[in-house]
Amino acid sequence: MKVKQGHWIWPYLLIAPALLTMLCVVFIPVVQAIVTSFRYYDLRYPGKTQFLGLGNYIEIFTQDPQFWPSIFRTLVWVVFGVGLQFLFGFILALILNRKFFGCGVVRALSMVPWVTPGVLIGLMWRWLYDGNYGVINDVLIRLGILEHGISFLSRHEAAMPAAVVSVVWQGIPFFALMLLAALQGVSSDMYEAADIDGASGAQKLFYITIPSIKNTLFVTVLLRIIWVANSVDIIQNMTAGGPAYATQTLSIYVYQKAHVLNLGYASAMSVILAVLLLVVAVPYLRFTFQSERS
């Protein structure tokens, strides 16, 4: 009886290291950021901290000329970035789900963009877009499309589309991998029955494939929205938010404010970003808990 009564503590002991790590790495910094957001806190003058209450938030919403434009640019960044990632990733997953010669090699190589660090992706695409020696300009000039090189990242109208292309290239393998795993779980009997009934490819896609993997579609899209909205590395290494704030998303703005050591103001904006992302996180968590109960 004593042994059986002591069994209840083992699950908690086993997860204690992970909980302790999460407490130190996630929970405490989050609480510290929330507390700091109500203060004037500049690392250059650590002894001159001052409690401002909602002062930072009021200044952000009413006096900061770059806050609302950064919200709009974040929306553009997420909608087009995640939307195109999903579209091309789904197409790639459908292709990889078929059997063909070299399928295993193609599947392995398709993961390269996903495993490449975001810093390297930003540097690589900055080189590709370079107006003097970039590969993209060289190809367009050789094809006769351009007469001379264009500095894509220095043009206000081209910088954001160029950054979106880079994050799409990075995220396609994530959708392809997740959706491919879901596609392989779809029973082939349904496709055989659809073939007997004379269903077209589009009908099988919309009435069999998509309904069968809708849960995976939902989760992957929500996760990627959160990751892309929080991403800093690609844009920071490509354009640093320029030119003229053309690629300054909210996460980049937070990073730049923290970089000049205005931690109170940056913490307030990071809290605002976290609240906005809760709009996406809550449906994801609700879906996860419902799946576990069922």
Results as ranks from 00 to 15, higher is better:
Pro211Ile: 07
Ser267Cys: 03
His156Trp: 14
Lys214Gln: 12
Ala268Gln: 01
Thr239His: 00
Gly144Met: 13
Gly198Ile: 01
Trp125Thr: 03
Ala176Leu: 13
Gly144Lys: 12
Val26Trp: 11
Ala176Ile: 15
Cys103Phe: 08
Ala33Ile: 13
Ile71Cys: 13
Thr74Val: 10
Ile213Arg: 06
Met160Arg: 03
Met190Ser: 02
Val139Trp: 10
Trp125Pro: 04
Ile145Cys: 07
Tyr253Gly: 00
Met238Gln: 06
Gln32Ala: 08
Ile34His: 02
Ile210Gly: 10
Pro11Phe: 06
Pro117Gly: 00
Ser110Gln: 11
Leu52Ser: 00
Lys214Trp: 12
Ile136Gly: 10
Leu179Pro: 07
Asp138Glu: 14
Phe206Glu: 04
Val282Cys: 07
Ser212Gln: 13
Gln290Lys: 15
Lys2Tyr: 04
Val164Ser: 03
Leu123Trp: 06
Gly134Ala: 05
Leu14Cys: 14
Ala244Glu: 14
Phe287Tyr: 15
Ile150Thr: 10
Asn137Trp: 13
Glu147His: 13
Leu285Trp: 08
Val282Glu: 10
Phe101Trp: 09
Leu276Lys: 13
Gln184Lys: 01
Val271Pro: 02
Val76Trp: 11
Gly131Tyr: 01
Arg98Phe: 03
Ala194Trp: 00
Ser267Arg: 00
Ala162Cys: 07
Ser37Asp: 02
Val279Ile: 15
Arg107Gly: 13
Thr247Pro: 09
Ile226Leu: 15
Gly198Ala: 02
Leu222Asn: 05
Ser154Met: 08
Ile172Leu: 13
Ile226Ser: 12
Ile60Trp: 04
Thr21Tyr: 08
Thr74Met: 11
Ala182Ser: 11
Ser231Ala: 12
Ala268Gly: 01
Asn215Ala: 15
Val167Lys: 02
Trp125Lys: 02
Lys4Thr: 08
Ile9Arg: 13
Ser294Asp: 12
Phe38Gln: 05
Val275Gly: 08
Met178Val: 15
Arg44Asn: 14
Arg155Asp: 15
Ala202Gln: 09
Asn97Ile: 02
Gly134Tyr: 06
Lys2Trp: 05
Pro243Arg: 12
Met178Gly: 08
Pro161Ser: 05
Ser188Tyr: 00
Trp169Asp: 05
Lys4Val: 06
Lys48Ala: 12
Gly104Leu: 14
Leu179Phe: 13
Ala33Trp: 07
Asn132Gln: 10
Ser188Pro: 01
Gly264Glu: 04
Ala281Phe: 14
Ser251Gly: 03
Ser251Tyr: 03
Trp127Glu: 05
His156Asn: 11
Ala274Tyr: 11
Val79Pro: 06
Tyr41Ser: 12
Glu59His: 09
Met238Cys: 03
Phe174His: 13
Val165Thr: 01
Asn230Gly: 08
Gly185Pro: 04
Ala16Val: 06
Gln256Ile: 00
Asp233Leu: 04
Leu285Ser: 12
Val279Lys: 10
Tyr57Ile: 01
Phe67Ile: 02
Tyr133Gly: 03
Val186Asn: 00
Asn56Ser: 05
Leu285Tyr: 07
Thr49Met: 11
Leu123Asp: 04
Thr288Lys: 12
Leu273Pro: 05
Trp10Ala: 12
